[in-house]
Write a protein that binds this DNA or RNA. Structure first.
Lengths: 223, 223
DNA sequence: GTTTTTCGTGACCGGCGGTCATAAAATGAC
DNA sequence: GTCATTTTATGACCGCCGGTCACGAAAAAC
């Protein structure tokens, strides 16, 4: 009986998360309220707070799930010995950018979560989980960077610390540009094609920045 | 009489803006409300809305003023013929980063303004002003980039478009990192010294990225 | 002094995130 | 099955937000 209860409780938590994602797909981020989530899940508002101590914890939970998925992909790239360090980096960056391009909800959460105020609001439990997974993602990328350095593809004038700091900044900035459109400019990156072009341009830039040369790979034809 | 009225009205608008800045210096960004601004200015809440059509217009107005100041500085660097293109870029980047480092309110507004929802909320008048000044800032920086290309300091493999896109992304990302601390990591960039070190590192990274070599200038001794 | 116009104001609105007394449902004893 | 007890879901409620507007005081016009 206890078991059954626990399982139902857990299933409902999944329902809340899924409802939130559904609503985020069809609605502006800013207008989503806890009441709407509860209603769409088919439960009362108070019940939501039996599962999450605040609204942002819902987002933190969803963000963590997505980060885990991304981390798995990163590890797979990092352990693929048939790829050079630079190729690993390219794969990771493309994966992360395309993941965000195709998952607007996650994109919102990623940006939202960067805000210090968000990190202060969520419960410590989620804070630590996000902190940990973020470190793991950076580490996985760092492995590829190290490999690139060892293979002599990376400009030796830049320290590894500087590389990570700089590339992280570019990544974050591009993520925001991808979501919000270029600063206040008219260039809006509305369509899928525009976003894809922007992504490729930024990835090329990042790799050219650290290698000193353009390394756009040959098209991945099977022959 | 009409004159006197107009002057008082204008003076009060200045008061609102100054009050907002004062409050932002001593208070968390998220907890600042229109009511507090009005009270601190010594006027009624309704009066604020005689000057600004919504809360975000106040921020937009302040942001625009700061951008204008930054633009003046950028133009001065761009027109300084004793600096090479790369040196112009370094000066602009350092100026912009330090400006934000020392002006937390502006930093908040800069980040806040990147959000699409912010741009949708403010009145068209401010939207266009911000849009224009942003383009002018990019143009001013672009002049330095062009100079760098002509002088042969910039990696010729990268197109100017790619350079601007990539550097803009790095700039935005670094700005956010500077304000919010590194992603969810423990590295927090709390102190002035930590921020300064981060700024120098990122600027070095950006210039190394586009030139292919580290170009940290000799210390600016007068002799 | 009286009327008319202008202009500042704070009570008010709908909606938000979050709480909690209470009703309803599940459980257990017999 | 019945009733007592515990567990659990709930939506009315709270304080606060950004934004509005009828109204009263001050200024202008006469």
């Amino acid at each position: 009986m206890n078991d059954r209860k626990a399982r139902e409780f857990s299933r409902r938590e999944r329902d809340i998360l899924d409802s939130t994602l559904e609503l985020l797909a069809g609605e502006h981020w800013e207008t989503l309220s806890v009441d709407k989530i509860a209603r769409h899940t088919g439960i009362g508002k108070g019940t939501v707070y039996k599962h999450f101590s605040c609204k942002d914890d819902i987002y933190a939970c969803l963000l963590f799930e997505d980060c885990k998925q991304m981390h798995d992909a990163f590890l797979a790239f990092a352990q693929n010995r048939s790829l050079s360090g630079v190729e690993q980096m390219r794969s990771m960056l493309l994966y992360a950018f395309e993941f965000h391009r195709d998952n607007v909800a996650h994109q919102h959460m990623h940006v939202h979560c960067k805000q210090q105020s968000f990190r202060e609001r969520i419960s410590p439990e989620y804070f630590e989980k996000l902190d940990a997974i973020d470190g793991q993602l950076t580490d996985a990328f760092g492995m590829a960077v190290c490999k690139g350095i060892e293979e002599g593809d990376v400009n030796p004038a830049m320290s590894q610390e500087m590389l990570i700091a700089g590339m992280s900044a570019t990544f974050e900035g591009a993520m925001i540009t991808l979501q919000e459109g270029g600063s206040c400019k008219h260039q809006q990156l509305d369509t899928h094609a525009q976003k894809t072009e922007y992504i490729n341009q930024v990835v090329d830039y990042m790799l050219a920045a650290i290698t000193g040369r353009l390394t756009r790979p040959v098209e991945q034809g099977k022959s």
